[in-house]
Amino acid sequence: MDSPILHFITPPIPYFIDCGRAYYEAGEYHISRSDIGVFDLIVVTRGSLAISENGTEWLLKQGEALILKPDGHHYGSAACKAETEMIWIHFQTYGSWRESANMDECLANQAELIETHKVSAYLNHCDVCSIFIPKHIHIVTKDMELLEHFSQLDQEPQSMRNWKRQATFQQFMQHLDLGLSSLSDVAAIRIAEKIELYIRHNYPLPISNPLLQKELNYHPNYLARSMLKVYGMTPMEYLLHYRIEQAKKLLLQTAWSVARIAEEIGFNHVSYFSSCFSKKEGISPSNFRSKFTNRENKPTHSERIP
């Protein structure tokens, strides 16, 4: 079957908790569990394993993996027909996540999930992005080598073992994320990333659709479609979004005036900046600063706060 996709918003990146191996004799079942509180990545290294999650059945063969949700009911749907071995990895995330049927659904819900993330993860002034991990995975040789590395780390002292396991897990997840992106709409993703990088590097400057067309050599309509598909907003909407995110950082990290911040991030008029900020955040720039800073101890100089 086509695999659903687990959509994570980061930072923070999903983090490693524990790992191990499990063995089944012919005739044995995977254990039945509900709401275990962590994601359970299981990788079959020998034999096959029949497992269900909330009524959906999967038959995992050697070299296949499945990510089980922390709030689901998991159970063996059939007995193993032969000796079976698997690697399991428990991980969790502090931020927002959602399981979607396909990439189009992920991208359609991306903006909503990001806004939820900023509230639940208390990242209201942080630049966030998405990680897409297939639920059902065919493990390639390079990724299997990373998984086998977890066992080798058992020989390390505990203090070093935990650091190295976390690093190995993140590398493994990065491979899965990049692998899924390469199978999706590659052209749209690459163009959107070029637009995003251009805006990040040049956001204080006057940026327009004609300028992006000149710089990237694509028609504005194609640029807009690519950004909508990947980021859920047009280039000009993303430019405004990014400028407001930078403004939030400057409001919290400097004692600059609102007028100076508006100028620094590319607004010609402070009144227009305040209007855009209030419309997007539901609060004025000054009130946003007051909400998160101690006004009694606020410095009077105009330099950046360390």
Rank of each mutant, 00 (worst) to 15 (best):
Y23H: 12
C19W: 11
L240W: 03
L123Q: 04
A255N: 09
H90E: 14
Y242F: 08
I5D: 05
H149M: 12
P11S: 01
E303H: 07
G282F: 04
L147G: 09
Q62R: 13
E115N: 15
N109R: 08
H219S: 09
Q92W: 13
N124W: 09
L212P: 04
S302T: 10
E145V: 10
R200L: 14
R200H: 07
L176H: 11
K249L: 09
R295A: 14
H175T: 10
P210S: 03
C129W: 12
I133W: 05
L240M: 03
T56R: 15
E245V: 05
N268I: 02
Q174D: 14
E83T: 15
A50S: 11
G37D: 07
N217S: 14
E112M: 09
A188N: 09
E281P: 01
P235Y: 03
E25S: 14
E28W: 13
A255D: 05
E85S: 11
K81N: 14
G20S: 03
T293H: 01
A65Q: 02
P134L: 10
A192E: 06
L216N: 03
K249I: 11
F273E: 00
G55R: 07
F288L: 01
I87Q: 09
L176N: 09
A121I: 04
Q174I: 11
K279G: 03
M233C: 03
K279I: 00
G37M: 12
N217Q: 15
P134R: 06
I207M: 08
H125D: 07
E215P: 02
M1N: 13
G72D: 11
F288Y: 06
N297C: 12
Y218I: 15
Y231R: 13
F292C: 02
L59K: 15
L66I: 15
N217W: 06
G282E: 00
F267P: 01
K135S: 01
V230G: 04
Y29L: 10
V140R: 07
S34F: 06
I244F: 01
E296W: 13
Y218P: 01
L240E: 04
A167N: 12
I195S: 00
I199M: 03
P285V: 04
E196P: 00
I139S: 03
K118L: 06
R243I: 04
W88V: 08
E156A: 10
H149T: 11
L49I: 13
A167L: 15
V230S: 05
A108L: 13
R200G: 02
P206Y: 04
L66Q: 03
I114N: 00
C126M: 09
N297H: 14
M1R: 07
Y15E: 04
R304L: 11
D143T: 10
T10I: 13
I283Y: 02
S77K: 06
E83Q: 13
V38P: 00
T168N: 14
D154M: 14
W58E: 12
P11M: 02
Q174C: 11
F39C: 01
N109T: 13
V119D: 10
P70C: 08
G282C: 08
M86S: 10
R200M: 05
S3N: 09
E64D: 14
Y24K: 15
M173W: 09
H73P: 00
I17R: 09
